[in-house]
Design a binder for these strands. Sequence first.
DNA 1: GTCTATAGCAGGATAGAC
DNA 2: GTCTATCCTGCTATAGAC
Lengths: 202, 202
Amino acid sequence: MSAASTPESNGTPTRREQLLAIAAELFAEKGFRNTTVRDIADAAGILSGSLYHHFDSKESMVDELLVPFQEELFGKYDEILASGDDARTKLERAVRVSFEAIDQHPHEVAIFQNDADHLGTFERFGYLADRNTQSRQVWVTLIEEGVRTGVLRPDLDVTLTYRFIRDTVWVAVRWYRPGRGLSHTAVADQYVRILLDGISNA
Amino acid sequence: MSAASTPESNGTPTRREQLLAIAAELFAEKGFRNTTVRDIADAAGILSGSLYHHFDSKESMVDELLVPFQEELFGKYDEILASGDDARTKLERAVRVSFEAIDQHPHEVAIFQNDADHLGTFERFGYLADRNTQSRQVWVTLIEEGVRTGVLRPDLDVTLTYRFIRDTVWVAVRWYRPGRGLSHTAVADQYVRILLDGISNA
DNA sequence: GTCTATAGCAGGATAGAC
DNA sequence: GTCTATCCTGCTATAGAC
């Protein structure tokens, strides 16, 4: 038995997965609230009522997109935190893992960036706030370790630096398009360079 | 006669301006589409129909918020471009002017950040795309001048650097709250420092 | 300048036929 | 698994009284 949201092992997505992929694209492009169930149904070539054979509600759809994505991402962060790498390497790896997420799950990242605040007002999506806290802990831990071990400037405002890194990384989902222009690794290279060394010709 | 969206010289805002301020806060907080005219009317203590005595439509309200804000902001950018400062100073000034805008017009900035894409799909808001282009020209001009005059690293990817600066600056509207915590000048100080010199303890 | 009342439409969701 | 048909709600906007 396979998880409902993971493609079957033979590579053929289930109908449910197809519909979810269509919904993800629309949610990411137009926003959750601005996407109607009729939009999703139209894009899938069926009528809106038929969607409810597969999903309880529009909310269930976005829920099913976000949960497995976040499990995967935070699993990778945990791996980095648990590794024996030095602070600078850990920070670099965390940035690269994030750009990889933008590359591999652009829709899920966009939905989280654009709609987490709004969705978070519903009990059902309370876990979004938890993930937010967890994310903050990851970055702050890495920055503090960097300052402590001397690889980062001792005068850094940790909270502000955390926000700076978080925002610079995730906001890239607004313009990055997988398969077009620079690869996610190339973008990550440049971002890490600017973040660590700045743009000044020192 | 005073401009419709500027407070009267005696400091007492007109009713129209009061309503606009209420709408701005709600648009910024919940998004344009997610804010109903009833929300605005409720917050103003009147009924939704009464709003239409003051404004043609919900779109007119957001239009009246964005246009004068952008005129002011781009006027300042033009001033910087036309100044005789060196490239590094110009770039710093542009960053500082942007943080000042976040401080003084947080709602307008938030609306532009969150809803420009959606609003831009209507003819009436075609000027939003023009402003976007104009903004890009400002930053790219400054970065290119910086590279040319040797104050910025010669190996910078100009487009990527432009996106980096634009995003890092404006995304701060998501967490910066005027009058709470660091001042906008203090935040700008740190951002400029990270942007130019990085976070590494070189 | 605000209220009453309501038109007109679009949205999420449901029941049951096929 | 999809369609037909429809309910109910909430939204923008309007007309005219006060």
